[in-house]
Amino acid sequence: MSDDHTRVRDFFSARAADWDNRFPDDGPAYRAAASELGLRPGGRVLDAGCGTGRALPALREVVGPQGAVLGIDLTPAMLEAATRAGRDREGQLLLGDVTRLPLRDGALDAVFGAGLISHLPDPGANLRELRRVVRPGGTLALFHPIGRAALAARQGRQITEDDLRAETNLRPLLSGAGWHLTSYVDEDTRFLALAVRQD
């Protein structure tokens, strides 16, 4: 395991047990974001870096009982917390690495990533890997239940110019990885960037 992976796993392992208690009111924001993925009943979606699986119920609502919902995370403690919360009933949980997904090319209609991009070791290459598993015309959603400024304030820091989530940085990053940014919202109450896989 790389140093980046070890750091991410250590960070989230230490926080897994209390993660959901820290953010108890995020459900409506997840549902609103999931509804914008363009998924239909029977669709196939991956929650990349799913953590405790907070997005899985919202994703299941969109694709219905015939759809496929997968959640993959690097941290066993997060997946254990997801199972304790019963979210394994909403989708299949996989222990794995979003930088090397165990999925065939074009297997999915969409990928959902909550708080994901800031934890990717090589964002350009990793976004290409997410593109690989999505069908042509499929969607990527990069989400956070609060915007960049609100998150920075919560963490007691300032937004910097090199923030990957800034539209001026994110648009070319996505384009270089084969995605076309179609929508960008950065408000206090949510961050949501939607992109479509380019052929």
Rank of each mutant, 00 (worst) to 15 (best):
A29Q: 10
R89W: 02
P41N: 07
A81M: 02
S35G: 15
R44G: 06
G91Y: 12
E80N: 09
L101D: 07
S13A: 11
V69Y: 12
D47P: 07
G27P: 00
H5V: 01
A82H: 09
P76H: 01
G91M: 15
R7K: 15
Q92D: 09
A48S: 12
G27F: 06
A48K: 03
L39S: 05
R100L: 08
R54G: 06
G38E: 09
R54C: 03
R54D: 03
D3V: 13
A58N: 01
D73F: 07
G43Y: 09
R60S: 01
L101K: 07
L39D: 05
D18N: 04
L94V: 15
R100P: 04
L74N: 01
Q66I: 00
L101Y: 10
A14E: 05
R7V: 11
R31N: 06
D3F: 07
R100K: 11
R9H: 01
G27W: 01
Q92F: 00
T83N: 00
W19K: 06
G91A: 13
L93T: 10
I72W: 02
P41F: 08
T75Y: 07
G96D: 09
S13R: 02
I72T: 02
G42T: 07
E80Q: 15
R104A: 15
N21I: 01
R7S: 13
D105Q: 15
A48T: 04
D26L: 04
R44M: 12
A48R: 02
V69E: 09
A16H: 02
L79R: 09
D47E: 05
A81W: 00
R87M: 08
A17H: 02
A33F: 11
R40T: 15
E90C: 14
A110R: 10
I72A: 11
P102H: 06
G96V: 07
V45E: 10
R7A: 15
D18E: 14
F23T: 03
E36H: 03
L93M: 13
P102M: 11
C50S: 14
R9M: 03
R104F: 10
D4I: 04
E90I: 00
G91T: 12
A29S: 11
G51C: 05
A107R: 08
Q66G: 03
G91D: 13
A68I: 14
G96I: 09
A81K: 13
V98F: 13
D20V: 12
P65R: 04
A32F: 08
D3I: 12
D109P: 13
G42N: 01
D105S: 14
A110F: 12
A107W: 06
R31K: 12
T83A: 08
T75G: 05
D109M: 14
V8N: 04
R31D: 13
L37I: 14
P102F: 10
V45W: 14
L79P: 10
R104N: 10
R84A: 15
D73A: 07
S13M: 00
R84T: 09
A32E: 11
Y30D: 04
S35N: 15
G64D: 09
G51V: 06
R89Q: 15
V63N: 05
N21W: 03
H5A: 15
A32K: 11
D88T: 02
V98R: 12
G51R: 01
L79I: 09
R104V: 14
L79D: 03
